[in-house]
Structure formats: structure tokens, C-alpha cells
Write a protein that binds this DNA or RNA. Structure first.
Lengths: 188, 188
DNA sequence: ATACGAATTTGACAATTGTCAATTGCTTTT
DNA sequence: AAAAGCAATTGACAATTGTCAAATTCGTAT
């Protein structure tokens, strides 16, 4: 059930069968229906999530408006960074944009294992450095690129997103209004 | 010479004397004169830096303009995330804004030690998660707050910065022109 | 103290993007 | 097929911020 997942972890940082066995205790898999939440508003994020199947949208409310922060495809990890580490209520909401299957890796378990198991500590280091690079590239993209450039980059890198997300979600993700995005589109 | 630094590391994640001894081999301390660079443009970032004394500015050039990305005070860590992990030329430049004393922790050494030493692996996890939280808060600050709010927050949290950084550096850090910042200031 | 240069402020105008409202287009339901 | 409802587009106008130029202030060296 978790073999494929453990193989993916193993590729990120090598794990012995013993380490894999230890991790198994702290894994869970859940089917989430389209529109249902994986992480609700103001709940504390106690897992690192993984999209085994489906598509997930991460968003927040700003002045009552739904702003898309990010989305995750099959085989991607995601979690609410500030809620997870600081153990504070999450201002991010995570929902399944389509029927999905999500693997939950518990913070408690991971925290315990990494104190005693070198392989798992190094796995966590790889996961964290991956997130950190990702986070940094996000900042650079916001700072270096205009909304127009980011839109063209999005349709180049993840064209599938265009069919899965509405104009409103794409524009809020890009940090512009839907009218402006509509005008960018018509000016091609 | 490095005892204070090692104590700070120890507070972040506990280290035995043996682990401290191992780390010592990979530490260096350098005095950097005001205006000199700690990391030059297009060089690969091979260290995690620490401000033992002084004040450091991190910036990049965009369309020929000097944009301040961040600054680090005494007892803060800093490095170029994408250059460090991906081992690519850094688009960030790091300079000493005043005469400074910087501690260099080598990537090579840290990478080697964390593969065999659980305490050092856990120290690195703490450093990374700290950076990740920081990076994430930066994104949230850019997304949730206006330039005006970020300015007021800056003078509240780090009032010393105002004396150390010019209007140009502060405004580029906030993502606005210096004229706009000047007008924000005069409207108080 | 004075003069010089750099940093900051101010003004006038232009460009970009947002807001609000109306319209069009598409999909679903009866 | 018609109607209803939602998403996307378009238009007119307002607000914000940027650009360029000039004026002023500030700090430093002579």
C-alpha cells in the first residue's frame, strides 16, 4: 500500500528496510472527495501530506477573498509550513480540487524517528532543503517577474493547470485581478 | 574563538563536546571591511555564514538597479539558498554594510558530518526549518501586506535599520520606488 | 564657515492596474 | 429547447504607483 511512496522517499534519501518499517507506523492514507478539506482553517497542521492520486489546492482568505497560494499535483509533497513548525492555527486551507488520495506522514512520528535514526534525519533534511529551495524560487519569481511573465511561465511549465483551475484561482495565484488576467489573455 | 558560536549552535540543537570538536574543523572566521563582499556575483555559495559582529546586506541587480533582498544583524545566519543547494552561480551579492566579522561554516564539512553524526544532522534540520519558516513568513508578508504596512512593521521590529540603510535600500527592499516611500513618510 | 556632492523631497505627468457595471458565452437543469 | 446560473470578457473610470525633472536638505571635506 505504501511501497510506491517509500520508494519515492528512498530516491530522495536512501532508506534501509528497517528505516522503512519504522516509518510505516506513522503513515496513513485517506481518500478525500472533491471539495473536501485536507487541512481546515485554524487547525494545526500535524502532517506532511503527499498527493498519491488527484489534485490539491492551497488557499487563504484575504479581505474575504479566496486567494490561491499554491497547488500540488500527483507525487508532490505539501504542508502548511508555519502551522507545522510553530504549531499555530493554519491560515492556509487545503482542499482536494478533485477526488484524491492523500498520504499523511505524522509530525510526531517523524520528530521521534529523526532523533534516533540517521537515515530518517537525512531524509528530513532533503525534504526540508527541497521545500526551502522551492520557497526561495517562489520569492524570486514574485520579485523578478511581472504577473504577465509568471502567467506565461505557468502555462509553459504546467499547462494542465489551465484546465483544472478557474480564471479566478489562476489570477489570485498570480496576484492580479481576473479582469487583468483576462486582458493579458486577449492581448496575445 | 568559536566558543560563543558553538554555544549558539548548542542552543539551537544540543551538541556534545565531541560534535563541537568535529565542527571546529570546518569553521573559519574572517574580518570583512565595510563595502567588501562576502559572496560575489556568480560565485557559488559554499558556506553558511554567521554575523559575529557587524551588519550585512544581501542584494541583487534587476535591470541594472540595486535591489536589497535582505540584511542580517549580529548573531544571524545567512546564505544564498539556491546557490548553496543547487551549486549554481549566485545572483545574490552579499556585502558588509559596516566593518564585520563573519563566521564561515563550510558546506562540504557540514555535508560530511551530517551523514554520520545524529546531533549535527538534527542541528542542520533546525537551521533549515528556521530558514524555511523565515522564507515562508517573507512570502506571507509580501502577499498579505501592502508596502506601507511592511514599512511600518519594519520600523517597529527593526528601528535600527533606519539609521543603517539608505532610503534607496529600504524602498527597494519594500518593493517600491524611493519617491513613493518618501511620500509615505511625509504622510504620517 | 563655506562649498560641494550625495541623498531626499516635491511636483507634474504618464502608465498600469483595480473597481464596478454591463454584456457575452457556456453549462446545467427542468 | 428554454431558462437559469455561473464564468469570462469588455468598457469606462478611478486610484495607485512609477517616471522624470527640479528643488531642497544634509553631511562632509576643505
Amino acid at each position: 500500500m505504501f511501497t510506491e511512496y517509500l520508494n519515492i522517499l528512498n530516491k530522495i534519501s536512501p532508506l534501509s528496510s528497517e528505516s522503512k518499517l519504522l516509518l510505516l507506523d506513522y503513515l496513513a492514507i485517506k481518500k478525500i472527495k472533491k471539495g473536501d478539506y485536507i487541512l481546515e482553517h485554524n487547525k494545526i497542521c500535524k502532517h506532511i501530506y503527499f498527493v498519491n492520486e488527484g489534485f490539491v489546492r492551497i488557499f487563504y482568505y484575504k479581505n474575504g477573498k479566496d486567494i490561491t497560494e499554491w497547488f500540488s499535483n500527483k507525487n508532490q509533497f505539501f504542508f502548511s509550513i508555519t502551522s507545522y513548525f510553530d504549531e499555530i492555527p493554519s491560515n492556509l486551507i487545503i482542499e482536494a480540487s478533485e477526488d484524491s488520495e492523500i498520504i499523511f506522514l505524522s509530525k510526531k512520528g517523524l520528530g521521534k524517528l529523526m532523533k534516533s535514526n540517521l537515515e530518517i534525519a537525512n531524509l528530513f533534511i532533503e525534504l526540508l532543503s527541497g521545500s526551502l529551495i522551492f520557497s526561495q524560487k517562489r520569492i524570486e519569481s514574485i520579485q523578478f517577474e511581472t504577473a504577465k511573465q509568471r502567467y506565461f511561465n505557468l502555462i509553459k511549465v504546467q499547462p494542465a493547470i489551465l484546465n483544472k483551475m478557474s480564471l479566478q484561482h489562476i489570477s489570485s495565484f498570480l496576484g492580479i485581478t481576473q479582469e487583468t488576467l483576462s486582458r493579458i489573455r486577449s492581448n496575445i
